[in-house]
Amino acid sequence: MFGRSIVGTHITFHNVVNYGAHGDGKSDDSHAFLSAWRDTCRTEGTPILVIPKNGVFKVKNINLSGPCKAKSIHIQLQGKIVAPERNEWAKGLQVDDKSSLILISQVNSLTIRGSGQINGFGSSWWNCPSCQRPKVIGFEQCNDLRVSHLSINDSPRAHVTVDGCNNAVFSHINIHAPGDSPNTDGFDISASKYITIQDSNIGTGDDCIAINGGSSFINATRIACGPGHGISVGSLGRNREHDTVEEVYVWNCSFTNTQNGARIKTWKGGAVKVSDVTFRGFEGTSGDEKTIDIDCDSSGCFNIVLEDINIASSEPGKPASCSCSNAHARTTSITPNCNCLFK
């Protein structure tokens, strides 16, 4: 193949191999990815960045940034992207809590699709609790984003972060890390609106999905979560910040071998008001005797609705219970009964 890109009738392809990527899993292909991205970003129309199948591309700390001249951009991720191990990553590069294997920022109308994989090789980081650890892929200030049919495994920290984005759909995403891997959230969402995660399998050592302050209209649909800590709003109110999260919808999701199901987390004394929350249609078993736990501070939680809930102990014959404090709620057809609620 000659040249660095292929120009079709209406579409321009930029293959990272044509920019010097080795794809052997040993060489650092970061520079080739950045060079291919620069040409893709400044191409008019709808260019396509190709990461071809049968290649294993090692990169670290690459920022695919905009704004771009392209009206929209497609990334075909067909091969495998891998991170270096911790000792190699740290050479000549400071790692902090904002570091990532791949950061995509200020790119609008981006579509990422393919049968490819991204592996963060987090096992070389997890035994160092005091280390600052990178995430695998982050999206910052990206609007009209579509990501589908990817596998993302073994991140040192969070697998996917979404920060300051508007109108994004993630579908058919498979995220996996061991259940005892620390802080390996599947998705971390913050300061974002109209974000949908659907038809995906997420199993990690932390939250399958964490929805943080400044986020609204977040939809999690048909998610198989487990292992992990469940699907969580928060934590909110750290350092007494006035975090707001609104219009979160969790539909048709399953929780298998998770620490929690669907929950809201706030910092004690964080002055976060919890209200207008509905739990409906939950059924299954729990290893914790407290199958329902609504623990509000002295200011109370208001307009909480529990309907059609049936959660039993996973141990035959062992009773299940509801625990609540300062919660104002109405209930319809729930087991166990929550007599501790204020009407």
Results as ranks from 00 to 15, higher is better:
4 R>S: 13
4 R>M: 14
9 T>I: 12
11 I>L: 11
15 N>F: 05
17 V>G: 01
17 V>L: 03
20 G>D: 05
23 G>R: 00
23 G>A: 02
24 D>P: 08
29 D>M: 05
31 H>F: 11
34 L>Y: 03
50 V>D: 03
57 F>T: 01
63 N>E: 12
66 G>S: 11
68 C>K: 01
69 K>L: 15
79 G>K: 01
95 V>P: 13
96 D>F: 13
98 K>R: 13
105 S>M: 12
108 N>S: 14
108 N>A: 10
109 S>E: 10
109 S>F: 13
113 R>V: 11
122 G>V: 04
134 P>H: 02
146 R>Q: 14
165 C>M: 06
168 A>T: 10
170 F>Y: 15
174 N>L: 04
175 I>Q: 06
197 I>R: 01
207 D>T: 05
207 D>K: 09
207 D>F: 13
209 I>G: 03
214 G>N: 08
219 N>A: 02
219 N>I: 01
220 A>W: 01
220 A>M: 09
229 H>P: 05
230 G>D: 11
233 V>E: 05
237 G>N: 08
240 R>P: 12
241 E>C: 07
248 V>L: 04
249 Y>F: 14
254 S>C: 08
256 T>F: 11
258 T>R: 04
261 G>E: 05
263 R>S: 14
266 T>D: 06
268 K>M: 09
278 T>W: 05
279 F>T: 04
285 T>N: 13
289 E>W: 06
290 K>F: 09
294 I>E: 03
296 C>F: 07
297 D>R: 00
297 D>Y: 05
299 S>A: 13
305 V>W: 07
307 E>Q: 10
308 D>A: 06
311 I>K: 01
313 S>C: 10
313 S>Q: 08
314 S>M: 08
323 S>G: 11
323 S>H: 06
324 C>W: 02
326 N>R: 06
327 A>G: 14
336 P>L: 03
338 C>N: 09
